[in-house]
């Protein structure tokens, strides 16, 4: 965390205040997975065991639920009508999911393993050994972005600003309240710029360096969506709720 006591813009503090408690989200998702496991055990030998990919889908699905819950709790977001809220989330859900994963790895700080939201650690070697070519490329691409953000020493407050910049994307079409979304985006950009200048005065280009990483995140999320779509079409995605609904929403 940046040095305490430095003047942090009020908006950034508000963003941090609205952040969900990581341990609470972790326990909710872990409880869901335990419930899944018990359900499977009760069905005995007949039940097909959940594959690693299947487990990842459940984790992504549950993480998506927590992301929607986070968005709902944001003061700015509440000002929007549900129609606009849905358009914004349909536009950026995969970027927020990938950012959640990437930011966890940035602070996990290990090169050879990844940390899941459940707190489990998976050796990269074993993950890549099981993964097909496409998933392996995705994981490697993710690790490259993690490395760039580690070098930048991206901090938690900057990550929350990223989330708002991604959610309040002024390029989303057919919004009823386009001007409001644009204004929030401008305010968040301003707050992040002010934050970087206050807290990292020796790095005047930090703001632009941070923003340069967002297109990489978008590319990764588009690749992740394509991969998920491919797996879904081949019947390999076990759960059929929020993850698949959001996938369809973007593609119809």
């Amino acid at each position: 965390a940046p040095p305490a006591g430095l003047p942090v813009p009020a908006l950034v503090l508000e963003f941090v205040r609205c952040e969900q408690d990581e341990l609470h989200v972790r326990s909710k998702i872990s409880a869901h997975l335990e419930h899944l496991q018990q359900d499977q055990n009760s069905r005995g030998a007949k039940a097909e065991p959940l594959s690693t990919f299947g487990l990842m889908c459940h984790i992504a699905d549950q993480t998506l639920f927590s992301i929607v819950e986070w968005a709902r709790s944001c003061t700015f977001f509440k000002e929007l009508k549900v129609g606009d809220q849905m358009k914004l989330l349909h536009n950026c859900w995969s970027e927020l999911l990938v950012l959640d994963y990437i930011s966890r790895q940035v602070h996990h700080g290990k090169q050879d393993s990844i940390l899941l939201i459940t707190g489990q650690e998976i050796e990269l070697v074993s993950l890549l050994a099981q993964a097909g070519v496409t998933l392996a490329d995705l994981v490697r691409g993710g690790q490259e972005l993690v490395q760039h953000l580690r070098e930048l020493q991206l901090d938690h407050r900057e990550i929350t600003c990223f989330k708002y910049l991604i959610l309040f994307n002024p390029d989303v079409k057919l919004l009823e309240n386009q001007a409001y979304v644009e204004s929030v985006y401008e305010q968040v950009s301003g707050a992040l710029l002010e934050y970087t200048l206050c807290v990292y005065p020796q790095h005047l280009e930090r703001f632009s360096q941070l923003l340069l990483r967002l297109p990489e995140l978008k590319t990764l999320s588009a690749q992740a969506e394509d991969y998920l779509c491919y797996k879904h079409l081949s019947g390999e995605v076990p759960c059929n709720n929020l993850l698949i609904e959001m996938l369809h929403a973007k593609r119809t």
């Binding site: 639920f65 929607v68 819950e69 709902r72 549900v82 809220q85 849905m86 989330l89 349909h90 709720n241 929020l242 609904e245 959001m246 369809h248 929403a249 119809t252």
Partner: peptide
């Protein structure tokens, strides 16, 4: 189309006091 996005709409519309 409306039916397709039922879950997200439910999540965004649901009343927290329920």
């Amino acid at each position: 189309k409306k039916k397709d996005n039922a879950l997200l709409r439910y999540l965004l519309d649901k009343d927290d006091n329920m």
